[in-house]
Design a protein around this nucleic acid. Structure first.
Lengths: 250, 250
DNA sequence: CGTGTTATTGAAGTGTATCAAATTGCGTGG
DNA sequence: CCACGCAATTTGATACACTTCAATAACACG
């Protein structure tokens, strides 16, 4: 049973708006050294030459909610450096079941593994919040890595952090009940990515459960006074109570 | 309910045999440039100075099956570079449930995240097969990373590979049935780490299920002619059949 | 305003965990 | 070397959390 993509969310093939192509004379605000999320990412503290090669080889693009940055199977263009907005990385199992693996925002990087190994992307990247991001092509990034140990080290630390997060979620997938995972999802996703209106389905795809179970659990949480449901909106009323539900020790 | 460590397996506090302490004049075969697993690890193609500092600052140690290299919560000494043998990394949930996160052997590295971030180890490292490994202290490794981009890049690639493995297992934990995960575990663990006699419990800890389910599934597999059970030993008879069971596409 | 998508509720089925108790296998000490 | 004892394995019975399927209601967007 293959997943049928809805018409509504399918604003795929329309190429996102391109700011400027490589080689030109970039406008002041699109320079990497002036990037608003520079301090968050891999490229803070780069040498002037580093920034120069970065600027000359990147492409600045705008995406809106629902846009597909890349799909599993696509050949990697390079890495995507997120200036603003947020993007979800989702894997689709052979039964069509989707899993949200990560949510990345300002300062984050997409497509690192695929670019390093020159293998196709292994998951889909979908825009949650309108985003501006730069594409840095593989060879440029390769050079940058080889000449700036700090970039490689920052990438390493980021990737080890993601690994650890994944290990935790892997354990939770069997140690915790669905109710506990949903409480955790609620806190985690609404905390870190507040601007996005998460759907029941997305909560399910994050918490490794079904939409129905999320719905039933949410209404149970409401009865217990932990949250308040206003149509599709979810308001957290009792953060501490949810933390206990999620079995997250303080 | 805390996990009770058995007496039999508890050869913990006995400090493993130390080959030589730092600063001395290492014997020829303990030099990193002569290490039998050098080509597998992070340190191939290091400069002569790199090897020199590596040699002067490392400690060579022998471990036997069941030895605890480190425990979750321990303060990191540095990274462990595995010359021979194999080690499992296991996380223990608050309910005492153990999960085997990784199995690492020759050329692999342990304790990278803890050393980089100077935070306590987050999991236990237990020796499966008699191992020889070198401890490289944090400052030495830090310097090595900062001066040898190739080391950082190799570490990055290794960590991205582990991340991807973890993502797959995370998805499988909910997409696949216990039977499918056990078939996968059987193939994966017996293929890659054949020298170790895996227990039913270890299969369970890898496949995110219980010992009882592993046992029942194994005897089912035997009835189907996929494996043969000889006491505690498991012999794979029909690899292809197991692959199909594991839903691993070829 | 209609159409497709999300959310909601209900009923039914089942894969696996859990608990308990017996048996086998194996390392260690006497 | 053998017997003892602990741990690993095995088998059975029971329970239930969660998925699955189905059908309706509410919403949002063009």
């Amino acid at each position: 049973m293959t997943k049928i993509q809805s018409k509504r969310t399918q604003n795929v093939e329309k190429a996102p708006e391109v700011d400027l192509a490589g080689g030109g004379n970039p406008s002041e605000e699109s320079l990497c050294q002036n990037c608003e999320s520079k301090h968050l990412g891999l490229f803070c503290g780069l040498s002037p030459e580093g920034y120069q090669s970065l600027n000359s080889m990147k492409r600045n693009q705008h995406y809106k909610t629902g846009d597909v940055v890349f799909r599993a199977g696509d050949h990697p263009q390079g890495i995507y450096c997120i200036k603003s907005g947020s993007v979800k990385i989702e894997a689709i199992g052979q039964d069509g079941q989707a899993h949200i693996l990560h949510v990345v925002n300002s300062g984050g990087i997409l497509g690192l593994k695929a670019s390093l190994d020159e293998v196709p992307y292994e998951a889909n990247a979908i825009v949650l919040q309108p985003a501006e991001m730069c594409i840095i092509h593989r060879p440029t990034f390769q050079t940058l890595l080889e000449t700036n140990p700090s970039v490689a080290i920052k990438a390493l630390r980021a990737s080890m952090l993601e690994l650890h997060e994944m290990e935790k979620r892997f354990c939770h997938a069997t140690d915790l009940t669905a109710v506990e995972r949903i409480a955790e999802a609620l806190l985690h996703l609404k905390d870190r990515f507040e601007s996005h209106r998460w759907s029941r389905r997305e909560f399910a795809e994050w918490a490794s459960t079904t939409t129905e179970t999320v719905i039933r659990t949410l209404s149970q949480f409401e009865k217990e006074g932990l949250i308040q449901l206003d149509g599709r909106k979810i308001i957290i009323k009792d953060r501490k109570g949810l933390l206990e539900k999620a079995k997250i020790m303080f």
